[in-house]
Design a binder for these strands. Structure first.
Length: 411
RNA sequence: GCAGGGAUGGCCGAGUGGACAAUGGCACCAGACUGUAAAUCUGGCGGCGUAAUGCCUACGAAGGUUCGAAUCCUUCUCCCUGCACCA
């Protein structure tokens, strides 16, 4: 070959096929093809935009779905443009019931970004990532410019959004700033001249507004690339930090493995497709045996964010603890027991002990757990609420299925 | 500003003077079953307490009436809806 391209560069069709995996919608797909071709010819990377909300704390597997797709774009030579929505966060995305939030200071936003960066770059390629803050342009717009922007879009079109029209029909309040929100987000696309905007399905409307606005100002409209919303560990609601049904990519291997094992079977296929790189035909084969499939899934995910060794170790530990229900001393996390919690003879009321080590929030709750035979000391169920125990180093305490540890007396 | 509606435990939502720590549903927790899946069954689900027909705190806030209030009265705060006013 006369070109200097490495032999392993995929064709446009191969690229499309790769990108399509798991994608919910690509609007429109043939425009993406054209953009990819043009980029390849011109040797110019596409600018792939993704908005990030500076109030999220951890990167979850759900968020990772979009990030992983973005990473694929990077691997194909394109450029990720992360827009930190520090200005729009102040308004609050109307998709929630969120009230107007206070303006975050630049320092706060900066601090947030730094905290998040480490997790973000577990997935993204740092060298192909650019970071923007939308307060840089939104915060500097004059009233004149705002009105000019508003003149590019009609109210009727903004009301096409389902939750807007619904609220209007139900005579629920709909505030002006809320319908302006999509315009702000859309303006971000203009500001950075996005070629593609990534997002979850919940961002469809907003992203399409960006596309239209770009057209209005004479920019080539962005392709809207949408990923499905990953269900949470409950298998019902979308994964979100506020619902507490999430798996964070920074969680330790054992936690991660356990959480994946606890998702409902019906969610497995989606997790395989969106959270792993297992080929799709193999996924179908693996799913024939649900139990083996789930362990495979958990291994795959832990491998991705930790290592194959960590995944193997996590699985072994999981098997011991939950499948065989034996807790090995070396596997149990340490419970620090303050010597002052014990009376002079070195014993403690079990009820209080359970509360003090944090396995129950109150004595009443501890009492209930004991009555319900949920408490085990060194493998023996203790159901007497008046029991006293004599904690010693390496004593194994287990409460319910998930709370367990090994005593270490300190102080 | 006017008129009407509302504020109850994590959420939804009953309750209009005592038997209400407050029906019911959801969520959650525990046990059984199992693959820590799903489904199902059982129990639990403010705190303190060895226990009690026990004590404390709780039904937006503060007072009041009463032997007794989530329930009645007064004031206040907040939210919602409609109308008006202003531009």
């Amino acid at each position: 070959m006369p070109t200097c391209q490495p032999a392993n560069v995929p064709t446009i069709e191969e690229q499309i096929a790769l990108l399509r995996r798991g994608a919910a919608e690509i609007i429109p797909e043939d425009e993406l093809r054209v953009k990819l071709e043009k980029a390849a010819q011109a040797g110019r990377p596409l600018r792939v935009k993704l908005g990030i909300d500076p109030t999220a704390r951890d990167v979850t597997l759900g968020w990772a779905v979009v990030l992983r797709k973005l990473r694929q774009f990077q691997d194909l030579g394109h450029e990720a443009c992360l827009i930190v929505g520090d200005f729009t966060a102040m308004i609050g995305d109307p998709s929630g019931k969120s009230k107007t939030r206070r303006q975050l200071s630049r320092e706060e936003v900066q601090g947030y970004v730094e905290a998040c960066t480490q997790q973000l770059f577990k997935i993204l390629d740092r060298d192909k990532t650019r970071l923007f803050f939308n307060s840089d342009w939104l915060g500097k717009m004059t009233m004149h410019e705002v009105i000019h922007l508003c003149s590019k879009y009609t109210v009727a079109r903004l009301l096409e959004r389902e939750d807007f029209s619904k609220r209007l029909a139900e005579q629920k309040p709909l505030y002006v700033h809320e319908i302006l929100y999509p315009l702000c987000q859309g303006y971000d696309s203009i500001a950075i001249q996005a070629d593609v905007e990534m997002g979850g399905m919940d961002q469809k409307f907003n992203n399409l507004v960006g596309r239209e606005l770009q057209r209005e100002v004479g920019q080539e409209p962005q392709v809207v690339f949408l990923m499905p919303l990953l269900v949470g560990t409950d298998g019902e609601e979308k994964m979100s930090q506020s619902l507490g049904n999430y798996i964070g990519i920074a969680e330790p291997p054992f936690e991660m493995f356990s959480k994946v094992m606890s998702i409902p079977d019906k969610a497995m296929e989606q997790y395989f497709v969106l959270c792993t790189d297992v080929p799709l035909d193999e996924v179908q084969r693996v799913l024939q045996d649900p139990y083996a499939a789930k362990k495979r899934l958990a291994r795959e995910i832990v491998t991705l964010y930790h290592s194959a060794d960590a995944a193997q170790a996590a699985q072994e530990q999981w098997t011991h603890i939950f499948s065989q229900r034996k807790i090995e001393a070396e596997e149990a996390p340490t419970i620090e027991v303050q010597r002052q919690w014990l009376s002079e003879d070195g014993t403690s009321r079990l009820i209080e002990f359970i509360r003090l080590i944090g396995f129950a929030p109150s004595n009443s709750e501890a009492r209930r757990l004991i009555q319900q035979k949920a408490v085990e000391i060194n493998g023996n169920v203790i159901a007497d609420i008046n029991a006293r125990i004599a904690p010693q180093d390496d004593m194994i305490v287990k409460v319910g299925k998930r709370r367990f540890g090994k005593v270490k007396i300190v102080g």
